[in-house]
Each structure stands twice: as C-alpha cells, then as structure tokens.
Amino acid sequence: MRDVELKMKERASELLKSGEVARVIGWKKGEFYHDPQPASFESVEELNAFVYNGFCGANLSKYLIQMSKKEGKTAIFLKPCDSYSFNQLVKEHRIVRENIHVIAIECQGKLDIEKIKAKGFDFVTEVEENGDEIAVASLYGNGAVQKDEVLLGKCETCKGKVHQVKDEEIILHEMQAGKKNRFEEVEKLEAMTEDERFAFWREQLQKCIRCNACRNVCPACSCLKCVFDNPASGIAAKANDDKFEEQLFHIIRAFHVSGRCTDCGECSRVCPQNIPLHLLNRKFIKDIDGLYGEYQAGETAEGKTPLTSYTEGDAEPNDVVNGEVR
C-alpha cells in the first residue's frame, strides 16, 4: 500500500506543479495511523500531509458537488466503489464533469478501527498493514489480526474492483472482490417472520440519534434542501420524539435514494450507533433487480433509473410479496 501512496503523492504533485489542476482531493494524515481525514491539497507543500492507507474508507465523490464548481480543475482519487457514486452524481447533474480529473486508485479493502479495537486492542498506538495480516500495537499488548475479520462492513461485500470511470489510474497490484454475497443479510431478514423483522428494526432504529450523518455523507442525498429540514414539507423533524419519527426518516430516506443508491455503504460506516442502514438500501436494490431486471446505479453516467422508467407488464403492487410476484 505504501508504494501506491507514494505514487499517488507523486502524481498529485505533478498535476499541481504543472498547473493542470488547481487542487487534488485525497486524504490527510490524522492524529493516528487510523484516522486520516478527507482533504483538498492546493500546493505541493500541503502534500506533505498526504496519506493513503487502509483507513481511507471515506467516499470522496460527494465533495465534488462543491469542489467542481470552484475555479480551475479538481483532481480526485476514487476507489472502485466511489466511482459508482461519481457517475451517479454526474447523471444527476450535481457535479461538473469537465472540471474533474479522475484518478482511479487501487483498493485492497478498507479497515474498521472499531473492529480492531473490539479484538482487545483498545489503546491503539500503531497499525501496520502486511497484506492479509494487520499488525497492531496497543498499550495493552501487541498482536496481529486477520484483515478479513476487521474489514469495514461495506468492504466485506465489495461489489467489484473495476472502476466505472477514470481519466488515469494508479493500480499496482491485483485487486479482489469481496468474499460475501451482499444480499445474504437481506435474505436472512426476509426469511424472518413479520414480527421478528419488526422487532429487529425497532431495536436498531431505536438507537438512532438523528444526527443526520447518514444523510449528509450519502452521495445520493444531494438535495439542496432536504424535506426533513423544510418546515413546509410537513415531515420536518429534528430529534426523536417518538419511535415513529425514526421509522419515517429512514423509510423516506431509503425510498428517496432507491434506484440511485450505488450501495457505497457510507451510511453504515458513519452511523455512530452502528445501525445497519445499508440493509435498508439493499432491500430496494434486491427488489429492483428481481422485479425490473438487474440494475446497478452508477455503472454509467447516462440512462434512466428503474424508478423513472416502466414497462406495461410490470407487476401489480398487491401481488408483490417480499420482492417477488406471487
């Protein structure tokens, strides 16, 4: 990964020096190895803080909504999964494609520090990535963990390592897709009884603190003014006053991004209460696949989405049970 980081830094430096781009969006060193933060770099000096490692899980594409409207070209490093979001944003005319230089970068799966800490390393001082093994130094002892066990949820079910868009690429090693089927968890829920499902979601959604992190990080949530912030919508709300509001918020949000959600998994990554929000979006993806043919949002930057098209022979809502026509 170190070689990839060096190559990225080098390329960013070239682009900035030559004046080809005015800024580069990537990641900046944090306080630890495990907390790099998204950042834009406008000069070669600023690149000293540039970093790319196993904890750069954030999807940077949404920052382009603001950045691509700035003076000059913006270069951005996109992981394969981020490239889907990028296409979707282009499709929805949220970002200005001509102003962006996409650099496709290698990704070997990103790590979840909470999972590492849960393995007993709760005072992490250092992390070292050695292929499939992650060496962790902590104040309470050192050790190694298997990468597969500490991947971010979204990376466990990685939908593929192919960039859907790129102007150039920095890929030095072969990349592998996720080992788990992404619909497995959805199917598990579908197999439950109605009561069990209700209890499951009740317990999960009850944790919601309505911080809006899922909404604000979501590349598909790009409305200028969200209905939940608009008193005129009749459903604006801030905190949880009743269990209904948590349901309302998450149902409406999931529905609103259905057909547009690329399954980038950012919602679940950022949730402070670790609610498996991706399972809401994946249900829509699964149902769309089953009812209207396989569709992956963000594969292209053109064309219609399943919810903005139809066929005369579509299933009747009353006949659809669990995403299948009965």
């Binding site: 950042a39 603190i209 309505r210 911080c211 604000n216 950022v270 402070p272």
Partner: peptide, 16 residues
Amino acid sequence: ESMSEACLGCGTCTFV
C-alpha cells in the same frame, strides 16, 4: 477554512 473543509455538517459530534 482548512479545518472545516471536510465537515459534512451532520450532528454526530454534537449529539454524542
């Protein structure tokens, strides 16, 4: 300016 650049404007920090 640079410190807040990546801020999503969510309320996570506030609510925790």
